[in-house]
Computed example of a mutant assay.
Amino acid sequence: MSRRAAVLGHPIGHSKSPALHRAAYAQLGADISYTAIDVTVEQLPGFMAGVAEQPEWCGLSVTMPLKSAMVAEVDEVRGAGAHLGVINTVAFENDGGIPRRVGYNTDVAGIVGAVGYAGAAERPDAVVLGGGGTSAAAIAALRELGCDSARIYVRDAGRAGEAVKAADAVGLAIELLPMERAAEGIAAAGLVVSTLPPRAADGIADGLAGPGVEGGGGVLLDVAYDPWPSRIAEVWQRRGGAVVPGLEMLLYQAVEQIKLFTGRDVGADVIDVMCDSVGLPRRVY
């Protein structure tokens, strides 16, 4: 039987996940189709009820704004997702003839892989921009990178519950700071992870480009990859820092999803064709 997988979110037309997954399945010889489906938070329960009646499904990638809402639609959450309360992956498993929907958060591995490949130092002086669902994965990733603390810049501290919950879960001390102070605060950081939507960091970039802002040379991961380069990425690079596009994170988290959906290893040959599919340079092994 042909299997089926998809990425869900709203809006979803910009997603590069179909290109990455289709390239991988073709290289693996896996008979899995992969599409993008526009689903809102309100539509999610009905969509998942329909999926339960269709045995061909093997996996779902989950993007904004569904990462928290999807937790209520699965039978079990494993790994980092269980601590964070935020998932980006649903794998369909069969437990003794009983189908189960299992949630995971592969964004954490995606961030660790992307900044590691860019050469981020161990235990970096770290900053996260934004306090939503992706910030939870960023906080967990910082803990895996050896950080004991991080500064989190948010527009509204009252809406940073996911970041606070994640920090408590992984034992990372965080300081919530106002977004209007972010330009000065990130200038000398060793690692910055921007989880803001496209163009939402433009004002921070303008402040960073202004006179009297000192520092530079760290690593910036901007999870927003369309348009690219982002304004903050351009300014960061001009200041001597290393820039990691969000596509790098998307690549590494997709590798983990593909392993879950197929039950197979993902070797260098598969990663190379995935890179080709979205215009990333091939890895150096």
Rank of each mutant, 00 (worst) to 15 (best):
M1L: 09
A5M: 10
L8E: 08
H10V: 00
P11R: 06
P11Y: 13
H14I: 00
K16R: 15
H21R: 04
A23N: 05
A24S: 06
Y25A: 03
A26I: 07
A30R: 07
S33A: 14
S33P: 10
S33M: 10
T35P: 01
T35R: 08
I37K: 02
D38K: 07
D38L: 03
V39N: 03
T40M: 02
E42Q: 14
Q43T: 05
Q43G: 15
L44P: 13
A49C: 06
V51K: 06
A52K: 15
E53P: 02
G59A: 06
G59P: 10
L60F: 15
M64S: 13
L66E: 14
S68A: 12
E73Y: 02
V74C: 07
V74A: 01
E76K: 03
E76Q: 11
E76H: 03
R78N: 09
R78F: 04
R78E: 14
G81M: 05
A82I: 06
G85D: 10
N88Q: 00
T89Y: 04
G97H: 06
P99C: 02
G103E: 12
T106N: 04
D107P: 10
G110W: 08
G110E: 08
V112N: 04
Y117H: 12
R123M: 10
A126S: 13
V128C: 08
V128Y: 04
V128G: 05
L129W: 12
L129H: 07
G131M: 04
G133Y: 08
G133I: 06
T134A: 13
R143P: 12
E144C: 11
G146T: 04
A150M: 13
A157T: 11
A163C: 12
A163K: 08
A169N: 13
A169S: 15
V170F: 01
V170S: 01
M179S: 10
E180A: 08
A189R: 05
G190D: 15
G190K: 03
V192A: 04
L196R: 04
L196F: 04
L196N: 05
P198E: 00
R199V: 14
A200N: 08
A200S: 14
D202A: 14
A205G: 15
D206R: 13
V213T: 14
E214D: 13
G216R: 01
G218A: 04
L220S: 03
L220F: 07
A224D: 01
W228N: 02
W228Q: 05
I232S: 02
V235M: 02
Q237W: 07
G241Y: 00
G241D: 02
G241H: 08
V243C: 10
P245A: 01
G246C: 01
G246R: 00
L247Y: 12
L247Q: 12
M249Q: 12
Y252S: 02
V255P: 09
K259S: 11
L260P: 08
F261E: 07
F261I: 06
G263L: 12
G263V: 11
R264L: 15
D269P: 09
I271E: 13
D272K: 05
V273Y: 07
C275Q: 03
C275G: 12
D276P: 13
G279R: 01
P281K: 11
R282Q: 15
V284M: 04
V284G: 03
Y285V: 11
